[in-house]
Amino acid sequence: MLKDHTDVCTTQEAAEILGLSVTSVQKLVEGGEMPAWKTPGGHRRIPRESVLAFKASGTVPRHDKGAPTRSTLLVVEDEEMQRAVFATQFAKWNLPLDVTFCKNGYEALIEIGLRAPDILFLDISMRGLDGYEVMETVLNRPSLRDVNIAIVSGVLSEELAARGGVPPGVAFFPKPVRYDELRGFATACCMRKQRLYA
Rank of each mutant, 00 (worst) to 15 (best):
residue 1 M to G: 09
residue 1 M to S: 13
residue 1 M to H: 06
residue 3 K to V: 14
residue 9 C to D: 09
residue 10 T to E: 04
residue 10 T to K: 02
residue 13 E to M: 13
residue 15 A to K: 03
residue 21 S to K: 06
residue 22 V to Y: 06
residue 22 V to R: 04
residue 23 T to W: 14
residue 24 S to R: 03
residue 25 V to G: 07
residue 25 V to F: 05
residue 27 K to H: 08
residue 29 V to K: 04
residue 29 V to F: 04
residue 30 E to A: 11
residue 31 G to N: 08
residue 31 G to R: 14
residue 31 G to W: 14
residue 32 G to Q: 03
residue 32 G to Y: 07
residue 33 E to Q: 12
residue 33 E to T: 15
residue 35 P to F: 02
residue 36 A to Y: 12
residue 37 W to M: 10
residue 39 T to M: 03
residue 39 T to E: 11
residue 40 P to F: 06
residue 40 P to E: 08
residue 40 P to S: 09
residue 49 E to V: 11
residue 51 V to N: 04
residue 52 L to T: 08
residue 54 F to G: 02
residue 57 S to P: 02
residue 58 G to D: 11
residue 58 G to I: 10
residue 58 G to W: 09
residue 59 T to S: 13
residue 64 D to E: 06
residue 64 D to G: 04
residue 65 K to H: 11
residue 65 K to M: 15
residue 71 S to Y: 02
residue 73 L to K: 01
residue 74 L to R: 00
residue 80 E to I: 14
residue 81 M to V: 11
residue 81 M to W: 15
residue 83 R to F: 11
residue 83 R to P: 06
residue 88 T to Y: 15
residue 89 Q to L: 08
residue 89 Q to E: 09
residue 89 Q to V: 01
residue 92 K to F: 15
residue 94 N to R: 10
residue 98 D to L: 13
residue 100 T to D: 07
residue 100 T to R: 08
residue 101 F to Q: 09
residue 102 C to W: 07
residue 103 K to M: 06
residue 104 N to H: 12
residue 104 N to R: 07
residue 104 N to I: 05
residue 106 Y to M: 07
residue 106 Y to Q: 13
residue 107 E to T: 01
residue 111 E to T: 12
residue 114 L to K: 12
residue 115 R to M: 14
residue 117 P to M: 14
residue 117 P to G: 12
residue 120 L to D: 10
residue 121 F to W: 02
residue 121 F to T: 05
residue 122 L to T: 07
residue 124 I to R: 14
residue 124 I to A: 05
residue 129 L to N: 07
residue 129 L to Y: 07
residue 129 L to Q: 07
residue 131 G to N: 11
residue 131 G to W: 09
residue 133 E to V: 01
residue 134 V to I: 01
residue 135 M to C: 12
residue 135 M to Q: 08
residue 135 M to N: 08
residue 135 M to S: 10
residue 135 M to H: 04
residue 138 V to P: 01
residue 138 V to I: 08
residue 140 N to Y: 03
residue 143 S to T: 15
residue 144 L to H: 06
residue 145 R to G: 14
residue 145 R to H: 13
residue 146 D to W: 08
residue 147 V to P: 02
residue 148 N to Q: 15
residue 150 A to R: 10
residue 150 A to T: 10
residue 153 S to Y: 14
residue 155 V to A: 02
residue 156 L to P: 04
residue 160 L to V: 10
residue 161 A to T: 15
residue 167 P to Q: 11
residue 168 P to G: 12
residue 170 V to G: 00
residue 175 K to A: 03
residue 178 R to F: 02
residue 178 R to E: 12
residue 179 Y to I: 09
residue 179 Y to T: 03
residue 179 Y to E: 05
residue 181 E to R: 10
residue 182 L to S: 00
residue 183 R to N: 02
residue 185 F to R: 05
residue 187 T to I: 14
residue 188 A to K: 13
residue 189 C to P: 13
residue 191 M to E: 09
residue 191 M to N: 02
residue 194 Q to I: 00
residue 196 L to I: 00
residue 197 Y to G: 00
residue 198 A to D: 01
residue 198 A to P: 07
